[in-house]
Amino acid sequence: MRLIDSLVRTSRRRSPWLFHLNAGSCNGCDIELVACLTPRYDVEQLGIRLEGSPRHADIIVVSGPVTRTTRAALETVYAQVPDPKVVVALGSCPASCNVFAGSPTVEGPLDRILPVDVYVPGCPPRPDAIIAGIAEAIALLAEGGHA
């Protein structure tokens, strides 16, 4: 049993698949996340894959301050990701709504809607910061995600 447990834990650490959700972001964070896939950063070396379908994902990466129109999608997608799962907030927007705080169409910050496990600060965060944030998330995922 212990062997299987540690195998599962290792496998979660070695194979985190991401689903990226843009909740009204300015594209800055989104593009930096795409840049993480490219030769210089190549997150595939950590076994990370950017998945198109939330059902395949382990880590939900959210950027943007959560606009009124994306909130429902955010909740649906969160429910579609099978457990264990971890939520990463990319940049200042999901953390605090950033410059959009006070806007009547913004419903963020993200922790009002979903439990957030890792915040990556920056506007937008550098790719190496994003990778560091995902590495944090991986450690949480190995322990079974958030409660």
């Binding site: 200042s92 922790d111 957030v116 990556v120 600060p121 920056g122 965060p125």
Partner: peptide
């Protein structure tokens, strides 16, 4: 909450503000 735009540093009259030369660390709670 920061946008890291550096306007405050630019406009600080006493040059008291400065910015780190590296990225901020990740964190767990708002």
């Amino acid at each position: 909450r920061c946008t890291f735009c550096g306007r405050c540093v630019d406009l600080c009259p006493g040059e008291a503000l400065s910015q780190d030369g590296d990225r901020a660390p990740t964190y767990a709670r708002s």
